[in-house]
Write a protein that binds this DNA or RNA. Structure first.
Lengths: 263, 263
DNA sequence: TCGCAGTACTTGTGATCACAGTACGGCGAC
DNA sequence: GTCGCCGTACTGTGATCACAAGTACTGCGA
């Protein structure tokens, strides 16, 4: 499961674009992709983190990644820099980087921010969603429901993500959407770890209720109810992590945050 | 005023630490600073942006900055990368970076996020602030009030910032604090531009009311009132920018967002 | 006088090299 | 046998070089 050893990492493919499914474009002859190597490396590692190809706590070294990706170290070091700034990765005292193991408090605070921002977005979506956007949300919801539970946990997580962002896009606040996105990436590795260890069955069942409530609230233009449903969904994730951390403190052991040693 | 020409930029000084005043440490023998050149460059440029040493819209080139800072291009290019990820700087189609000129919508959405997050923090501060933290907040308030209006607008902005963050630190949510900080840096250049053009007098007078209300609310443990005061303060900034943009559309002219050309 | 092409220069990107700091192993002394 | 030292291997950092893409300027020709 974890990509710890020398399992070959596929070369970054040009089709591996951002983490959100791009909206279908109707206009032809859109500008061709002219991205840099560094950008591809960045997106590839980011995707790997979302997909839990790296384990929380795992240390990533520049040269090894460069070798596995078939590039020099330059694109990799800059990609890791970027991920560190986003706090998707964590700086060790040796200046190596690792996948963070979020403490209960950190996870809770990120979830708190998510509740505030995403609740706001859900409220706006209920007010503003167009018919087309509503259809997208419903499609995402169906996709989530139809995800086979025994399938890779990342699939459930992926569908869950797409459902949420289908809602948030309907709020028509692109700048705020960009603030929310990194919060998901930060939670990603730890959340997926939860999926794997706890079994996706129970989690999916819990989320389904909130999803249905959110969907209906948006369809019926009830902003407060939409906000409430999304907040409840996030709160459930937060509390699940709290509980899990308490019960498996040893698993998340090891030297916790690097910064703890600083102050 | 603007640092457009060849005005020498001071070498990054080891004392130029973060943008927040560090809390006084009581324990001796804290770890010595062991930061990298890149980090100093990053903080120096970041500080320069907050202080409005660069004008919104101004293009920054790696080699020129490197020369002015007296380093090779390596630390500078990574510092600019980091600032771009934080969206403090903006990528041009040529892959140069420039100081963003926030559109009215972007500024409004960032302020909306700030109202949600910082309002939350103000509420918590009113619930949790210790006597010592309250003293820090009051000191910051006095410092803001005593700032001479004709002095550099950046001083007012600096004091304002310190007052706000004195409150937020009393919420005891470091992770969320880290989410708020980059929002201030993003707003920085455009806000200070506002100060300069509009005159700090009026702005300071407006903020003073909100500050006093927030301070009293925290002192008297009224969380809802504290949140309200902070939100009102941010909303005033947001609306001032909206108005200013409408009236000075030509000043902020030029090709707006780069991404506008992409879709 | 206008328009176009060619050139020189500036820009960011990526690769390679040199270096300093750290971690970890073995080896020797007590 | 255990503790401490030392050397090796490895890691990130910073500098320099090579290159491709873009821009602006200049000069030639219509």
């Amino acid at each position: 499961m974890w990509n710890e050893g020398n399992n070959p990492m596929p070369r970054p493919s040009p089709t591996a674009s951002g983490t959100l499914a791009p909206k279908p474009h109707t206009n032809t002859l859109q500008p061709i992709a002219r991205d840099t190597l560094q950008e591809r490396v960045y997106l590839r590692i980011r995707q790997a983190l979302i997909n839990s190809e790296f384990k929380p706590g795992q240390v990533l070294t520049i040269r090894e990644l460069a070798q596995r990706l078939g590039t020099s170290i330059m694109p990799v070091r800059e990609a890791l820099q970027k991920l560190t700034v986003e706090r998707v990765l964590e700086l060790l005292p040796t200046r190596s980087v690792r996948v963070p193991v979020l403490s209960a408090e950190e996870f809770a605070q990120i979830c708190e921010a998510r509740m505030l921002l995403e609740g706001h977005m859900a409220r706006l979506a209920a007010e503003r969603a167009t018919a087309e956007e509503l259809e997208r949300i419903e499609a995402a919801s169906r996709a989530f429901l139809s995800a086979k539970v025994p399938s890779a946990p990342t699939v459930i997580q992926q569908r869950n993500r797409e459902f949420h962002f289908a809602i948030y896009e309907a709020a028509h606040q692109p700048t705020m959407l960009e603030l929310i996105e990194p919060l998901w990436v930060r939670c990603g590795p730890c959340t997926v770890a939860l999926f794997i260890d706890l079994g996706a069955e129970k989690i999916k069942r819990g989320a389904t209720t909130h999803h249905q409530q959110a969907l209906e609230a948006i369809r019926e233009r009830r902003p407060a109810a939409a906000e409430e449903a999304i907040v409840a969904d996030i709160r459930a994730t937060s509390e699940r992590y709290q509980k899990y951390r308490r019960e498996h403190a040893e698993f998340f052991g090891g030297p916790r945050s690097v910064r703890a040693a600083e102050s």
